[in-house]
């Protein structure tokens, strides 16, 4: 993958995130648990979840990688 495209993608995503953060202050929330009604919660939680998933996946990946296609 060409890094230039990636850099542009990061910029676009950052813009989208900023936009969503703004929108989050405008919409009316219907929280179930309180914390999920805070503006920006979804962004923070999504990012944390992604980080945790990546960390877990990478850690587990070393254990479970098996190699070539199994041909039986």
């Amino acid at each position: 993958m060409i890094p230039a495209i990636l850099r542009r993608a990061v910029l676009v995503l950052a813009a989208v995130v900023a936009l969503l953060l703004g929108a989050d202050f405008l919409v009316a929330h219907h929280p179930y648990f309180g914390i999920d009604g805070l503006p920006g919660f979804a962004l923070a939680f999504g990012g944390l979840a992604a980080l945790a998933t990546l960390a877990l996946g990478a850690a587990a990946g070393r254990l479970i990688a098996r190699g070539a296609f199994d041909d039986d």
């Binding site: 995503l13 995130v17 969503l20 962004l43």
Partner: peptide, 12 residues
């Protein structure tokens, strides 16, 4: 959208 976008940004 916020959950998905944040996740994508983190991955990138």
């Amino acid at each position: 959208l916020a959950v998905l976008a944040a996740a994508a940004l983190v991955l990138l």
